[in-house]
Write a protein that binds this DNA or RNA. Structure first.
Lengths: 340, 340
DNA sequence: TTGAAAGCGTTACCAA
DNA sequence: TTGGTAACGCTTTCAA
């Protein structure tokens, strides 16, 4: 910048003005400066600006993992919106480990991000949330559904999604169901969805509530489901907490020689549409994920500007029959009507 | 930092030393400083450091989109490795638009990243590559396979993957094949894979080479494939440039009332295993994507340190029969042996 | 309309 | 072993 100033025979202050307030500078002066900048291949050092200014125009994002298309797609939405707004995105992932959440957020704060978008293992009684609240750093939870109402969060209603999908399966005649869910410790969504599952069964007067818990990343359900699929009281339907688990469940059914649907029906909840990829057989509760990411960033911007107050936003989910291989994107309602 | 210094009755310089070179400071001094830091809730401002130091310990990442699990998973690998090394990841996406690549990289350079990992629309004759070469900024291409040998790149051999998979289908008796590929302008992988497809057909003495090009994001192949599936010279097999396209193709086949495999066989190339999700029916050329991301970052670190020279790294791909819904992760060879 | 200069939070050199 | 201080590149106030 000093070089540009020297080259154009003007001061550093003027160069800065040309960059930041081109309107406040005569066109010809701006021209001189711009020429010098091009000549010298000048690149503003954003770190200098960040150090000086109170706003860094940077947002931090924490997701459990990008290996799950749900989170990846939401980050794509955040990224897209950030691009439009000229914001920089700092990305970290926790690998579903609550212990790593604090470290990751800490690193983001050291970068002086203006705000954060987080998908946490557990939104309630979370030290990260407490820290952010104490330091008054704007943040939006994504996919989490905290109990406190004064925390910004964007999610579907997890319990209701599970409740609806379970009811849909009951309506199709299933009386014997199991829920496959992730470990409750690493996903409050799992627990909330299990609650919805139980509520639907209770309401239908079904006593037996099976639960298979799977640790993160596990995709082999052949053994965990063996008894429930082949035993004397085999279930006729599987409700899955996530679409990835539903895929694994379908695979396991086939490994045991069962057809889906037919011998078994599978439903997948995610509050999402899986990046245009697939939805599991029979039932699916969906909400376009990318759009949720964009909304989260828009919401966060409001918080940062102080124009909005933190509050939970529960998006409606859409219940639909699923394809085991579908191909929809964006609008989850426009889905291929084919069947396997 | 000044506050910490004052609180501990020492100088700023000492505080800095405690943070950066704890070994060069007496344990008790360090203890005093640490106590003060905790008491004051001190957070180092990384931007100050970045401004001062020549290395920012930050890497920039550019992918076409995170909505494609292939890229998302690779970013997860990069992210994971960066976490271990204490590096910050700056993420951007081009949405497959070559025009946006320069803008995105420019923004990353303004952040003074130490190096870049890029998946470009076209690696050859690319202004971004020229810029980086001219400015001597370390970078690694991921999934791109540039002609120049002195550019760092990690990829499978795109042409060979397509060649192998096409040969596999020919070996199964197919004589009438179509390739479904993305637009060549937005993916050099597409073109390279199409070349491999053609070479295999040539070698088998098959004249007819069908090509259906699909623009990015399109997942509805029902119309584009209608004639080729139902017409008088209908194909018996479809080779797809990516797994996402293969899924769309399978879906289209079913929409037309064709079974897969059976009436039609579908093969999908991606040089990847899709984040544990699915592989398309019949054939698949796979390579664990997350691992590729990790390798890319490790490679980049070598370049940044000046310990390595830029060179292309072609990973072997693994040809396998695919499941339309599988569930493998990491090791692509340990895959569910079920069939639809 | 332009410029001088202070200061953002660090690091690292040189002295004490 | 510790401290004073210049410098990193930028923004912004105040004055000219």
């Amino acid at each position: 910048m000093r070089d540009v100033a020297r080259k154009s025979g003007l001061s550093i202050a003027t160069v800065s003005r040309v960059i930041n307030f081109p309107g406040e500078v005569p066109a010809e002066t701006a021209e001189i400066v711009n020429t010098a900048m091009r000549y010298l291949n000048y690149r503003p050092n954003i770190n200098g600006r960040r150090l000086k200014m109170s706003q860094t125009r940077t947002v931090g994002v924490l997701v459990p993992t990008l290996a799950n298309p749900v989170f990846a797609t939401s980050v794509q939405g955040i990224e897209q919106e950030a691009n439009i707004e000229g914001l920089t995105v700092l990305l970290t992932s926790s690998n579903y480990d609550p212990e790593r959440e604090m470290g990751a957020v800490s690193a983001l704060l050291n970068n002086r991000v203006d705000g954060l978008i987080l998908t946490l293992a557990n939104a309630d009684n979370n030290p990260v949330v407490d820290l952010l609240l104490a330091e008054k750093i704007p943040f939006v939870l994504l996919f989490n559904q905290p109990e406190r109402a004064d925390i910004a969060a964007i999610s579907v209603d997890n319990a209701k999604s599970a409740f609806d999908i379970t009811n849909a399966m009951i309506a199709k005649g299933h009386r014997s169901l199991v829920m496959v869910a992730g470990q409750f410790e690493s996903s409050d969504r799992s627990r909330q969805r299990y609650d919805g599952f139980c509520r639907a069964l209770d309401q239908a007067g079904i006593e037996k509530k099976h639960l298979v818990q799977v640790r993160f990343g596990e995709t082999d359900l052949v053994e965990p489901l063996r008894d429930l699929l082949l035993g004397p009281d085999a279930v006729t339907g599987i409700v899955c907490s996530t679409d990835m688990l539903a895929i694994a469940a379908i695979s396991a059914c086939r490994a045991h020689g069962l057809s889906v649907p037919g011998d078994v029906s599978v439903g997948g909840i995610d509050g999402i549409s899986v990046g245009g990829l697939i939805t599991p057989k029979l039932c699916s509760a969906v909400q376009p994920t990318q759009e949720m990411g964009r909304q989260a960033l828009a919401f966060l911007r409001g918080l940062i500007k102080g124009q909005t107050n933190p509050q939970s936003l529960l998006l409606p989910h859409h219940l639909s029959d699923g394809d085991s291989i579908g191909a929809f994107r964006g609008d989850s309602r426009r889905r291929s009507s084919t069947r396997v």
